[in-house]
Design a protein around this nucleic acid. Sequence first.
DNA 1: TATAATACAGACAGGTTTGTCTGTCAAAGA
DNA 2: TCTTTGACAGACAAACCTGTCTGTATTATA
Lengths: 197, 197
Amino acid sequence: MKCVTTTRKPNARDRILRTAAQLFHERGYGGVGINEIIEKAETAKATFYHHFPTKESLCEAWLEAAHENSECNRQKLLEGPGTAIDKLDLYFSKLGEYLAASDFRGCPYSNTATVTCTGGGEALVRQVMDHKLSIRDFFRKLAMEFSGSEERAREVGDSLFLLYSGATTEAQNLRVLWPVEAAKRTARELCEAEKCR
Amino acid sequence: MKCVTTTRKPNARDRILRTAAQLFHERGYGGVGINEIIEKAETAKATFYHHFPTKESLCEAWLEAAHENSECNRQKLLEGPGTAIDKLDLYFSKLGEYLAASDFRGCPYSNTATVTCTGGGEALVRQVMDHKLSIRDFFRKLAMEFSGSEERAREVGDSLFLLYSGATTEAQNLRVLWPVEAAKRTARELCEAEKCR
DNA sequence: TATAATACAGACAGGTTTGTCTGTCAAAGA
DNA sequence: TCTTTGACAGACAAACCTGTCTGTATTATA
């Protein structure tokens, strides 16, 4: 029943998903068509629609895979060594590397949300929200390390979350890295101010 | 030569620009076609292309008009009464009202930038940058009021700018107002921390 | 060996998009 | 009065888009 181990060609579904991930990230969900995806993935249209009922379902699969990956990275960072400030520093450094490497394409979720706001896509909207709230939670957990109360940690976590989001957005708009550096610095200042509260 | 005073019908160009502004803001540049614009503006396609050589030029005109308006508002706020903290509070309050009133459509410039990243549009990219840098400057000027040095004002201004951007982005993604409230609170904390530095 | 699943190729439908073009009409100014 | 200008109507082209469909080939498993 399930398509478990049985595949004889290099797996068309994976090729499609990988190709779509790259193209969607580079040019956005609306900027890439099915035809280009299947062409670059070297597959047939019938094969595509065998694995994905619609283009939107491909988008969902892409965002879901990306979300699992990013959440795993945040989890590893949380569980790793170092203080919260160290981890924040590392997180923003990695963010800068990621943005520069992807030619300042910004956050795939935010970018997708701006395109799919109209025309149904309720599942996509939900996915974007879940991802964002997961990142918000990550910063909240970090803030727990140095904030007095849980309530205060929520506040500080939200501050860090906004700095992260703003840095990502404006690095994309301005195609520069200073927003990430500014966010990193502000985050550090925020944490230090919090410790002597 | 110039189209100065002479118009006999209620001015088709204005109608097109006004209609486009509304539709672009509601559904994004890529989500609205020429046909819908001219239909809702009750004009003809030939008239449209008489005033705007391309769809992109219409987008430029839209963003330019919006930029002038928003810059004027910021200037008035800067010149108005009250402390910098008062002005920041007011600014974020107005931002929340704006986002809620426009059904959390976020920043038109950022939204446009995600769509037009590919396919030329060098002028549009420049317009987005100019707008963003103008807002950055606004926060920098506010920070000058309570920051010790000009250098420090630049840093604090950037922090505020990122909070603003993050709040706008995440209010759009999550369709809620708390990011704006969190940004307002963090901005206030930042200012107060700066004063006793 | 037979079956079922996966893959391929590519035509096709029906819709959208931007932009061009032809031609008519009304009114302001020379 | 005549010319110019802006506006109107709408057909049309050419390119895209998503999704359907027919038909064939390969291969693992029952």
